[in-house]
Design a protein around this nucleic acid. Sequence first.
DNA 1: TCTACGCCTTACCT
DNA 2: AAGGTAAGGCGTA
Length: 285
Amino acid sequence: MSTMTLDIEPFDLEQTLDGGQAFRWHLLGDASYCGVVESRAVHIASEGRRVVVSFDADDSQDEMRERAEDYLQAVMDVSEVRRVLGSEPGFGESVSKSPLVRVMRQEPWECLAAFICSQNSNIPRIKQMVAAVARLGRRIGEEEWAYEFPEPRVVADAGEAYLRSVGLGYRAKHLSLTAQVVAGWGDGALARLRTASYSEAKDALMELQGVGPKVADCVLAYSLDKGEAFPVDVHVRRAAIRLYGLDEDIKNDMVGEWARDRFGKYAAWAQLYMFRDEINRRLTS
DNA sequence: TCTACGCCTTACCT
DNA sequence: AAGGTAAGGCGTA
């Protein structure tokens, strides 16, 4: 293993890596995490005032630094996030005083597949489903989680029946059909949506089976550089109504527009905080 | 077009 | 141990 220190302020590893925007990070006993970034097994730890990334000694330091910094969005100026969200009701104090929950930049296809699995499910189960899909990919290490996420073609060829057999339920059909379509688009087609506008990219994603407004916003926020995306699920909706006094009967797409207006390009960040706070609230009440 | 509502699978939790 | 719950989306009325 090689290690390097990222020039990035320490952040909330648990809520960032394992808080529901990604589903393939594994907690180790020492509060660090291991997982896969672009077909490489990596280990991420917070050590004092530093973030330390470890990886296979065969990989070049420069290349791994670039990958990790991209995945964790290390170059972005988070002081602006603190300024914009730091005095919001409910979660503002957490933003300004605690280690940040970061919006990451995942590989779009893996992100899309994961959130197709997420519908009408919960985090433990989503992890189980994504792990099963990941096992279709190339092994990149000894650990049970160490698989490169399979290309769309591979998932499509595995077929609906297989995906059902590993626990995806009715989502198997959605993922199988979408994998087929995305495979047909060719390499890099999904990532190309990064240069499209928010609404163009969202329309394109929602053409896919199993991708409605909520799943689309997750993919836009967590993999396609659309900070204005604001995934509205039952929890975030409840939080928005409670914290900001929105009408009880407001439509979900209106909640999204409200969030874009209020939080701008940091809507996705606000959503992570609102989601977390609402979940914690339900668990503790 | 727009909205409301039933349904879809099953792991996980209590 | 059995039954309810869960980061939604789709098809139909």
